[in-house]
Design a protein around this nucleic acid. Structure first.
Lengths: 396, 396
DNA sequence: CGACTTCTTCCACTCCCGGGACAAAGAGTC
DNA sequence: GACTCTTTGTCCCGGGAGTGGAAGAAGTCG
């Protein structure tokens, strides 16, 4: 069932919609303070938005000393679908027009099973959310995939960890199935947008968002906009060399960051440590589970296991080395570290900070916060919703 | 003598001025094809520009099959001053409104002599150019300095190689002395703008411009605009670590790129090679001149000296290592290498290319040209003129 | 209850802009 | 050289967008 969502007729209306999205319900007068339009003009545009149904009246606003104003808010029935496809799991969430998460599902699934199987699952999860009553239909969907994307077309290109996805028309296909507008982007970029919208990066124009999961990627935000590079592969820092003649990487080179530090590398190192008997804790966990993950390392470290701590510390140093270079080059106003292994938390952060503050130039690091993402697994889905809402809230 | 240059009254006029600057003289009709304005509107704006004197009529245009059109061109008396202050020399040039260089002077001078002495010299050079008849006054001046700049104010901040320049109000002071608008930027950024305006980077939106001089810097161009970072120090890649526990750098760290490869490092390596007797050629040059520079290495390499070639090859490898990382991160559409040691030319280029194509991901390098800058020492001054012309040709 | 403030609506006026009509100037053809 | 066709420049009209003032509605505060 196709749902015809109205679109703003001009840039002013788009601006107003985004203000209502980011700032919540607001009165006409307050909007007037923000947008620099004459009262009459503002009234006209608001009336048109009310006509389209994108905006509705919502009671009286608090008085500012005189006549009380009527509040405006985005249509409460608007729903966006945020989908974050990771290497080994899928997150699907439903948000309202203000991008508040109303329902969120997570299921393990290997992305290598291919686009058809994955999207079958995604659609099933979306149906489940609908059935739970949080949505009747969707006005747009944002999709994140763990690899480079040709953004305008919404098609993955040459994704290393996603065999079978190269060239699959994700945007086209899902737009058909869901009956609503769809945008596709790299999962890291979406995390960056999520942290910017609702997380630690609010009010920062230029920043970097490093996501450590199965691999490592970096979202680049410039002037509030995600920068994607010439072919859509910007931020692909997992294969920067951190050690000449270092470990062999799946990409064919030696010493890549990902080979030395990432969810996958950490798990392998931990298993090594367990088998060689260097860490009793890790050995016990290996015994119990049959395999180790980054989460096990995190737990062991929290329990005081020195080998686990050392692994994290060393990884943070590698990561810090790369980030230091990027900071010198890009001079961001903030660095956010997030992703699956954020559980490593402050041990990792301390190690990264030490390395960056030591290696980068003082001018670039003087006021540079390096922090953990605060949204965890919802960063991706919120970013996805944000992506598509930017699209829906822009004139066609 | 203050020269009051008119400014465009609106964005349309600015657009037209920049079109005339970049495309040369043009007829109304051709401009109409480019700007998507109605003929009436275009006529009005052109008339106003003619009134201000920024644009003048210039004979008849070639016929396109019907009535011939009158050509328009930017006022032939407009003059921009481009100043490129390097670590050890100063370039000053005068351009017309189309940014063609009408006169160019170069003098050796050490930037460490301080801003007052340097600008005295700059003003003298500007006077000399005036005296030679290429200009009567200046409608704007762009200044490049070898260090980070707080761009909006036009003030150098914490420049490592420019003691005494920190906080010196360059823009303010020169604007007073020259009696025209002045903009200040990092020399590397100006080189990037120069190569974009008149060099190899025409028609490329996102690219990197690596300048190798006494130090090493990198201009970052995104969507045709220079990116300067949060504090104006973006592109400062000279102190990215290329070797853990490598050579000591003036900045206090170990293994910085600049310590291993730059004009200064190359000269030092060459002297070592000469003294230790490994290279007869270099020894002879050292004997003759008393000291060696990057140019000597370049000349020796051209003459077939294997030690010099090896130095260049090794340096290119270091540089390529860093560029490979930046390419993965930034995914540019082009990489330009320029600066004083471009004389090292194709030996260096080959070495860099090898390293980048081997280390970066195929998706990022698939269509990535890595080339030498084609403007040489004029890139900086043209970029400076471009900077200020963008300012002058924008509505106030 | 009255003075003052804030918010909303209405309206007249201005300005911008697009497009059509027309004239001017050239090219090409016979 | 006359004629047609095309391109270019100019003029004018009408529609639409936007501004700011004024008046009215709905509050607060003393």
């Amino acid at each position: 069932m196709r749902r015809m969502t109205a679109r703003p007729a001009n840039a002013h209306q788009g601006r107003l919609l985004r203000l209502l999205r980011d700032g919540g319900p607001n009165s006409r007068a307050q909007l007037g303070d923000l947008v620099d339009l004459s009262r009459s003009k503002l009234a006209v545009e608001v009336d048109r938005l009310l006509e389209t149904g994108l905006v509705v009246a919502d009671g009286l606003a608090a008085s500012r000393g005189g006549r009380r104003s009527h509040n405006l808010r985005l249509a409460p029935a608007l729903r966006f679908l945020g989908v974050d496809i990771g290497a080994t799991s899928i997150d699907v969430a439903v948000t309202n027009a203000e991008l508040e998460v109303l329902g969120h599902l997570n299921q393990p699934m290997d992305v290598s099973e291919g686009p058809v199987a994955v999207f079958e699952r995604v659609l099933a999860m979306a149906e489940k959310l609908k059935a739970s009553g949080v949505a009747e239909g969707f006005d747009g969907a944002g999709i994140g995939v763990p690899g480079p994307v040709r953004f305008p077309e919404g098609v993955p290109v040459a994704p290393p960890i996603m065999p079978g996805w190269d060239g699959f028309p994700v945007r086209e296909a899902l737009s058909q199935d869901l009956g609503c507008p769809v945008m596709v982007d790299n999962d890291v970029n979406l995390m960056a947008m999520g942290e910017q919208h609702a997380g630690v990066a609010r009010s920062v124009g230029d920043y970097l968002c490093v996501k450590i999961g199965t691999g490592i990627g970096c979202g680049i935000v410039i002037g509030g906009q995600v920068y994607r590079g010439t072919t859509g592969s910007a931020g692909d820092i997992g294969h920067i060399q951190v050690q000449p003649d270092g470990r062999a990487c799946a990409c064919g080179n030696l010493g890549c960051l990902e080979a030395h530090f990432s969810g996958a590398a950490l798990a392998r190192d931990a298993e090594d440590a367990a088998r060689s008997g260097r860490s009793a804790q890790l050995a016990a966990r290996l015994e119990a589970a049959g395999e180790l993950t980054a989460a096990d390392v995190s737990a062991a470290a929290a329990a005081g296991d020195t080998v686990a701590l050392e692994l994290i510390r060393e990884g943070g140093q590698r990561l810090g080395q790369v980030i230091a270079g990027l900071v010198s080059f890009f001079n961001p106003g903030l660095v956010v570290i997030g992703g699956g292994v954020t559980g490593l938390g402050h041990t990792l952060l301390a190690s990264v900070r030490t390395q960056v503050y030591r290696q980068s130039l003082p001018l670039a690091t003087r006021n540079l916060p390096i922090v953990l993402g605060e949204l965890g697994p919802t960063a991706g889905v919120i970013g996805a919703a944000r992506l598509i809402s930017d699209h829906v809230f822009s004139p066609a």
